[in-house]
Structures are given as C-alpha cells and as structure tokens.
Design a protein around this nucleic acid. Structure first.
Lengths: 204, 204
DNA sequence: CAATGAATAGGAGATATCTCATATAGTTAA
DNA sequence: TTAACTATATGAGATATCTCCTATTCATTG
C-alpha cells in the first residue's frame, strides 16, 4: 500500500505518537481522527454489560483505525489501546470526511480493508462457536510466540479467548503435562510445535 | 438505497430466482456473480475441519452477496442458501469488476455495507465470548419470533448458536419451566417477554 | 521503603455444555 | 407405500468451563 489517504488531503494529515498503554480511542468516544497505524501495535477492546471485557483483535501497521466512524454516523466506538509505542497518521474527520467518501482509490482501499476485517471477524466468530479453548489457545500460542517462547500475559489472553483465568491456567497446565510446553518462570517454551499445530490446525 | 450497481452496468445485470433451500453460492466455489438480494431470505454457512457447521448470519433484502470475491482474489467462499424463494440482481464479475472498483458511489455503498457487516460480526464474536447460550438464545428467540410465536428449527439454531442439539433442548426446557415459554406442538409461545428481554439485553 | 493494587497460581465445588445411545415422528424419494 | 433420511426428544455420564477463595509474587507510587 502506498499512501493511505488521498494526496490532496495529506497536507491536513498529522503524525501522532502514543505511549505504551495509552488509549488511541476511548471506548464509546467517537474519535476526531481517522488513523492509519504506521508503527507499533495496538489492541481493540469492548466492554459488555455483564462486566466482561473482550479483546477483539490485535492490530499491526498498515491498519485503519476509526474508519467505522467515517461510514456510520451512529457507531459505538471500540476502545483502542497501544501495546507498544505507536505512530499513526491522523486525518481530521470533520474537514476530510466528504472528500474521503468521494475518492474512489481511497474507497477501494478502505473497502478491501473492511472486507478483510469482516472476514477475519466472521472467522473468529465461527471458530469460537465450533472449537473449545484448547484449540484456540494452541493457535494463539503459535501465532504470538517469538523464537519458540510464548509469554503473553494471562489476563490479556483471557479477554482474547473469552475464558476465565482459572480455566486458562488449567489448559496451559495440560499442555505442559502433555509435553507441548515447558514452563520457564513467567514464560513458556514450545517443546512440541507439531502437537500444538495439530490442535490449532483444527482452526485452519 | 436506490440502485445497488452503477447505472452503466445495469444493462449487464440479470435477475435470478432461487428456490427454497437452493444454494446461491456453494461453499468453496467462488461465484460468477456479485449478487444483490432484493427479495427473500438466505443463510450463510461455513463448515469446519472438525465437521461442525456454523450458521454465520441470516441475510435479508438490500444485501450484497459475493462481495468478498470482488475485493479479495483468494477468498474462501461461504455457502449461501435460500431460506425462502429468493430474487437477486446479479452482475457478472468477470466483465464488471474493474468498473465497479472505480466507481466512487458504488464503493461508498459497498464500504458502508462492509463496515456494517464487520461491526455485526465483531459484535456476535465478542458476545459469543462473553455470554452463555442462555442469553444468546433469549436474544435470538425475541428476534426471530413472529406474533409471540417462536418456531425456528432446532437444528438450524444449533448451528447458529454453536451449541449441541442436546443442550439447546435443555435450555429451552428451562425457559418453559420458568414460565418464559409455553411449548405448543412444534413451536413455542412467548409467555414472559420481559424475562427473555432481561436475559437478552445482557446482549445489548 | 512500605503500601496498595494488579497479576500469577492453584484448590474445591458448581454449572454449562458435550457425547453417545436410543426411541419416535416427520419428510422425501424410489 | 416402503425405505431412508432428517428432525425431535430424552436419559446418562463425561468434560469444559466457571465462580469463589486464598496465597504469593510483581509493579507502581507516595
């Protein structure tokens, strides 16, 4: 992808930086900008009426953020929190909205982005219906591990998988018992990648 | 919404009819058309590697179908099945793709449609993580009931809620015991809408 | 440094949900 | 109309997952 926004609007585009754990968008507060993440990582959260919190997705560079507010006037904004130091391009919605919505090249990129997002969410949705935590956790471990080391915070993973802290520990303990993982202090080393892969690949 | 496709392409647009239970799109087979549902209802299905089937969504008139294939070259097509007799406008992708992807008005409508779809899927996803079947079933009963009569087929609902047939019956039986529903032959009459609403409104 | 709150860790018991088996009724096609 | 599915119904027993509780470690901040 080249430029995320139409050339004529780039002059209005700011570069914003966010600290680790800072909120790019607070839940329920429509943001004043359309963001395009260029560096860093962030998390999208939503809070439910029963108090549970869901971590909807992790987002990486080359991602639009706040694009829902561009298209839907009445949209309940999700919370977006920086995981690392993060850099975004930011375009003020108030002055740019009309022009964005008339630019075919931008709209095509946006539609492609949204179709990927819709597809991803459908996939996660149907997988959450069809597979137990064991499979989805195996998948997540493989995806988030670095150099065969898995070290996500349990509390984060609970929100991501929609599972209780207690149960997450049970399943991790099982993986250790079966020799898939070996616990090393706060992190886990992957010892039987194939086994995890078999579990995860149920989740295509 | 006025016209779903750009005026210059309308001459290539066919009107197709599907019988009840006929497949508009077979799972895994990219469709040759971009559809726009004008009359009838349909269901979107996906099959998992463990054999389970998920009913992703019900679709109603004014819905694009096959739009993912327009934007993503490598897309695993979901199965789409007519629930009732269904009428669609159908535009051949092969000849119209480029022109569609250059039309700002169409792209804007498509992007809006996709943002709604992504939002809906995120919502269903996070709710599936945060709420048990009881809440999601109450919500579904209220949404699908007509004149206080609920009469969806259990097998369909199992796929929709990602729950076993056995468990679905348990929860329905509970609703009857508590006086929320009264079973009348194959259907259920809603007797305590407020109670169901309370359960469902957890699911905002 | 102490103090407070968050995160990790695991026990015990309750629920939610699943699998398997079996029986009956409804639907479809030869 | 039978034969062969498909859907409904329900019991019994297994698992997956949750809630509540308690203890310890870790991180932040006055």
């Amino acid at each position: 992808m080249q430029q995320p926004f139409p050339q004529p609007l780039m002059s209005q585009c700011k570069t914003l930086h966010f600290a680790r754990n800072e909120w790019l968008i607070k839940e329920g507060e429509p943001p004043p900008y359309l963001y395009f993440l260029v560096e860093g990582k962030a998390k999208i959260y939503v809070t439910h009426s029963n108090g549970k919190v869901s971590l909807l997705d992790f987002v990486a560079p080359h991602t639009y953020i706040g694009e829902m507010e561009l298209l839907n006037d009445t949209y309940y904004s999700k919370g977006v929190q920086a995981i690392t130091v993060t850099t975004c391009l930011a375009l003020p919605l108030a002055t740019c909205k009309e022009e964005l919505l008339a630019d075919a090249k931008f709209l095509r990129a946006l539609a492609t982005f949204l179709s990927t997002k819709a597809t991803l969410m459908s996939k996660k949705y149907s997988q959450s219906l069809a597979y137990p935590v064991e499979n989805r956790l195996a998948d997540f471990i493989l995806q988030s591990a670095d150099q065969h080391i898995y070290q996500e915070r349990h509390v984060t993973v609970c929100d991501y998988l929609g599972v209780s802290y207690r149960h997450l520990l049970y399943v991790l303990a099982q993986f250790c018992e079966r020799g898939y993982l070996v616990k090393k202090g706060k992190s886990y080393e992957i010892f039987d990648e194939q086994a995890l892969y078999n579990l995860a690949s149920e989740v295509r």
